[in-house]
């Protein structure tokens, strides 16, 4: 899958920590509806563009948001593959526990047979 080479593993702890802030969660929700510049993101919030830039910087450093240059505009984009990784740990835990409970079931039945 070629996407795997361009999609580094997101730092889960940093991403969860970044999303601990309500403004950053709102920014991610807004970006889920489409790309936006810092100026556009600042509009619905009672915050300066500098404050929004700071929050975008945190989201960029943990890999959830990227910013590109289009002439004088610098639109932000949500890195959806990285955000999706936040939920894949659950699937990994499910696989591990199903395997573990298979072993538990075997252990209990071995014990009962003794």
């Amino acid at each position: 899958m070629p996407a795997a080479t361009t999609t580094p593993v997101v730092d889960l702890d940093a991403a969860f920590a970044a999303l601990g802030d309500p403004v950053r969660r709102a920014l991610v929700s807004r970006l889920a509806h489409g790309d936006a510049t810092v100026g556009e993101l600042a509009e619905p919030f009672d915050l300066t563009q500098q404050a929004i830039s700071h929050h975008i910087g945190v989201l960029r450093r943990c890999g959830l948001v990227e910013q590109r240059r289009e002439g004088t505009r610098r639109p932000c984009r949500l890195r959806t593959a990285q955000l999706a990784q936040l939920s894949t740990w659950i699937d990994e835990q499910r696989r591990a526990w199903h395997d573990r409970l298979d072993a538990l079931e075997q252990h209990l039945s071995d014990e009962a047979a003794r």
Partner: peptide, 28 residues
């Protein structure tokens, strides 16, 4: 299981995260 940093260990914060992921699912 739950794996959330302390900031997200309230129902409100968890709901906020769920709504983000709902928005993402709609976007995708």
């Amino acid at each position: 299981q739950r794996r959330l940093p302390p900031e997200l260990r309230t129902a409100q914060a968890a709901d906020g995260l769920t709504s983000i992921l709902d928005a993402l699912a709609a976007y995708l």
